[in-house]
Design a binder for these strands. Structure first.
Length: 490
RNA sequence: GGUUCCUUGGCCGAGUGGCUUAGGCACUGGUCUGCAAAACCAGGUACGGCGGUUCGAAUCCGCCAGGAACCUCCA
């Protein structure tokens, strides 16, 4: 708890010292997925970034309330005002009830987040479950005169807002630029200005998802849910608001405007934005259709994938880059991550084999300091990982007798390595070591290794090599060590 | 066109004024091995271009080149 944490605040474009609004407590709101498609690699980035943040804050004994919403209503498919609700469109295509689609993809999202060892948020509210709260918020904004009704829809009056409050404080845009640069879309006639945004939309006759309201049968506008739900669960001013950089404008800018009017203050003290994962230098996302789903990564079933990659490889791959940098997808990079993670895992498994000496020539305190300094510096997970590999070197050197470690250092070392690898980075132990000695397969394999060992003693290399080769074909890798052979699944 | 940002060695990717060998992978050498694989140890290569500020810049400023995100739903 005595650590100084610095986080980059998009509002100030600087790293700032983190000071919670209420001592020992942190309110965190993160924009979650729109559940109308399978979760892809891009969804893993914010999930893992803010999982890392909450894991670390929890370790420092902050009580974290982490709210991550599910967007199941309100986003339009194409042209802003004439579009069709995304969820409704998907439902028609698949001939499913909208809520059935929502539930299906929500479940899928949960399943894949669990595989990535992403902890569940404290509260996961759905937009469709907070229609009343959103309507109340719209009423307040109307009463205060910062919105107007037009043909059954309600729009936020950005120009009027800008006279009293600075619009664009997060994204650096100003309304003059927006006026000249916003595209002309259909249905703009309902609005006073092109940059006004909808708080409530009247539903077209064919629109399935709709709710009654004082203005029309319709649905809430794009940005309403986050304002209403963050206030309900975290209050009108909370610590950290997170999300992808692509949400910065207009989503978060509009959210600030809505909340500022409705609640009388800006919603969050710190704004954190994770960068995009790119593929061939371009953002991986829905619009370009260049995304690879998490399922495809785990099965390897995609033309761009040379092999399957385990969930922990994906997690490690993401943590190897800083969350504010773009991260470029590539098989070579993923394979490098896989091998690096494997090396870390192997070393972690050898932690208990280390023996203490009367003296110590490794500096565990310095390692610990470096790890904390890195994670406190705007969650610099790549540096954390680099330092953990220094730890790997210590493990191997001590086991090889090249370095000595005292009993108390060894104790501290084990604690700090496990803390950072498992608890903070959230990397689960390797799963291919699950096979234990009470397993039938293991008995058979011991027999095979014994037969091969006998052949080797008799210098019957042909038989020994044949056993090794045949086992390899069946997916078993034989590793000859200095103290006997072992095996693992390929 | 506007806003925000990026350009580091074979690849991924940290680093923001003067030793960071960042780290991982790949590569090379070594140890081990019947051989091989694995494992471990060791080692080399960089800072888009041109100017400027400075005793000193990958790191600050300017210009140029190239690229990205956002301005429309997107993590």
């Amino acid at each position: 708890m005595d650590k100084e944490i610095f986080i980059y605040n998009t509002l100030s474009r600087k790293k700032e010292r983190f000071e919670p609004i209420t001592a020992h407590k942190v309110g965190l709101y993160v924009c979650g997925p729109t559940v109308y498609g399978d979760p892809h690699l891009g969804h893993a980035r914010p999930a893992i970034t803010f999982d890392l943040l909450t894991r670390f804050l929890s370790h420092l004994e902050y009580k974290v309330r982490y709210v991550r919403n599910i967007t199941d209503v309100g986003h339009l498919e194409n042209d802003a005002d004439e579009g069709e609700d995304k969820v409704a469109k998907k439902a028609r295509l698949e001939e499913l009830e909208p809520m059935e689609v929502v539930q299906y993809y929500t479940n899928r999202y949960h399943d894949y987040m669990k595989l990535l060892n992403v902890k569940s948020p404290s509260i996961e509210p759905r937009a469709s479950g907070h229609i009343i709260e959103q309507q109340e918020e719209i009423k307040t904004i109307l009463e205060k005169g910062y919105a107007y009704e037009s043909n059954g829809s309600v729009y936020f009056d950005v120009k009027k807002y800008n006279e009293a409050f600075p619009y664009g404080i997060l994204s650096g845009r100003n309304i003059d630029d927006l006026l000249t640069n916003t595209r002309t879309l259909d249905g703009q006639s309902e609005k006073k200005n092109s940059f006004d945004f909808a708080l409530w939309k009247k539903a077209a006759p064919e629109h399935i998802m709709r709710w009654p309201s004082p203005w029309s049968d319709g649905f809430p506008g794009w940005h309403m849910e986050c304002s209403a739900m963050s206030k309900k669960y975290l209050g009108d001013h909370f610590d950290i608001h997170g999300g992808g950089m692509d949400l910065l404008f207009p989503h978060h800018e509009c959210e600030i405007a809505q909340s500022t009017v409705a609640h009388g203050k800006t919603p969050a003290k710190y704004w954190m934005h994770n960068n995009m994962i790119t593929i061939g230098g371009q953002k991986m996302g829905k619009s370009l259709g260049n995304f690879i789903t998490l399922e495809q990564f785990f099965t390897g079933d995609h033309e761009k994938l040379e092999q399957a990659y385990s969930p922990m490889t994906i997690r490690f791959f993401i943590l190897q880059a800083h969350y504010r940098s773009t991260l470029d997808f590539g098989n070579e990079a993923l394979q490098a991550a896989e091998k690096g993670l494997n090396r870390l895992n192997e070393a972690m498994l050898k932690l208990d084999q280390m023996e203490a000496s009367s003296q110590s020539d490794c500096d565990i305190k310095s390692l610990e300091d470096k790890l904390y300094t890195a994670i406190c510096d705007d969650l610099n997970s790549p540096i954390v990982i680099a330092n953990l590999f220094d730890g790997v070197k210590i493990i191997n050197n001590v086991l090889a007798g090249k370095q000595k470690i005292s009993a108390s250092d060894l104790n501290d070392f084990k604690i700090i390595m496990r803390l950072f690898v498992y608890d903070i980075l959230g990397l689960m132990p390797a799963d291919n070591v699950a096979v234990t000695s009470d397993n039938k397969l293991d008995e058979v394999m011991s027999l095979m290794l014994q037969l091969r060992q006998n052949a080797k003693i008799n210098k019957d290399w042909a038989t020994a090599d044949k056993i090794r080769e045949e086992l390899l074909n069946m997916g078993f890798v034989i590793k000859d060590g200095s103290d006997g052979a072992s095996w693992e699944l390929k």
